[in-house]
């Protein structure tokens, strides 16, 4: 699905003014928005999600217009059909893993996970190998586990596009490689298009089918590559090592 962004946004904090003015279009399976910190990446991705309202411009996803300042269109976040993975994962600290994942399927007056969604939640937890963590609170999880929970929660409503804000920056280096592989597998399994922002060149290497380079609030370059990410060779030893990192040492509740 083609995603077209052409937006402007001015920010004023104290005596520092920042002007974002980005325009790009990408039809690829995965898009990486790459740039140094403070370049306006997060603002861009949050504008696509609808969390930030641009001053002017258009955001179009496939056939649907998400935002158009001229036509007065500004779809609310919940109607945009996009998932969002926050940099710090933003898991709800007062809810268990199962409740976090069931969150998008639960109405706000339902205090417990309703029976109609229980099966669905269990299926996706199984797919992410986190069934054993169902009763844990987020603070009891490791970084990799948190990311899996956040991904499961973002994907449970089957969005067409998953937006990822620096998805691997909170992880240790060995774990990053492993989670990148997992994300690639996920993309195929859930047929979800990825739009990721990062300042890590390694992410560009793996996900940068379309690469949008942003600097100082403006797009400097857009590069399209023949993506050959599907058949990358994997070092078995490296794979085993990173898999071991994800084994949870103590299932919570037994603390």
């Amino acid at each position: 699905m083609r995603i077209s962004v052409d937006i402007e946004k001015g920010l004023q904090s104290g005596d520092r003014a920042f002007r974002l003015r980005v325009a790009f279009s990408s039809g690829g399976e995965s898009t990486v928005i790459f740039g140094p910190s403070g370049s306006g990446k997060t603002l861009t991705i949050q504008a696509i999600a609808g969390l930030v309202r641009p001053d002017a411009g258009r955001i179009v996803l496939g056939e649907g217009t998400l935002f158009d300042s001229v036509a007065g269109i500004d779809l609310p976040v919940r109607k945009r059909g996009v998932g969002f993975l926050f940099q710090d994962y933003a898991l709800f600290p007062h809810l268990t893993v199962a409740q976090n994942i069931a969150y998008p399927l639960t109405r706000f007056w339902e205090w417990r996970i309703p029976d109609r969604v229980r099966l669905e939640v269990e299926e996706i937890m199984d797919a992410f190998e986190i069934l054993g963590l169902a009763a844990c609170l987020p603070r009891e999880l490791s970084g990799g586990q948190r990311q899996r929970v956040a991904l499961a929660r973002a994907l449970v409503r089957r969005p067409t596009v998953l937006l990822l804000d620096e998805p691997f920056s909170a992880l240790d280096t060995p774990l990053r490689a492993r989670m990148r592989e997992e994300l690639l597998a996920l993309r195929r399994r859930f047929r979800v298009q990825l739009v990721m922002i990062t300042h890590d060149p390694a992410d560009v290497e793996v996900f940068g089918e379309t690469l949008v380079y942003i600097e100082e609030g403006a797009v400097r370059n857009v590069v399209r590559r023949r993506a050959d990410v599907k058949n990358r060779s994997k070092d078995p030893a490296e794979k085993a090592r990173s898999a071991a990192l994800l084994q949870f040492s103590s299932p919570c509740g037994v603390r």
Binding site: L51, P76, V77, F84, F86, A90, P104, R157
Partner: peptide
């Protein structure tokens, strides 16, 4: 944390929810 409220919005919540 404001991010948690944003997360709720991306997961389909209205402001009241």
């Amino acid at each position: 944390d404001g991010n948690l409220e944003k997360a709720a919005r991306t997961l389909g919540d209205r402001e009241i929810a």
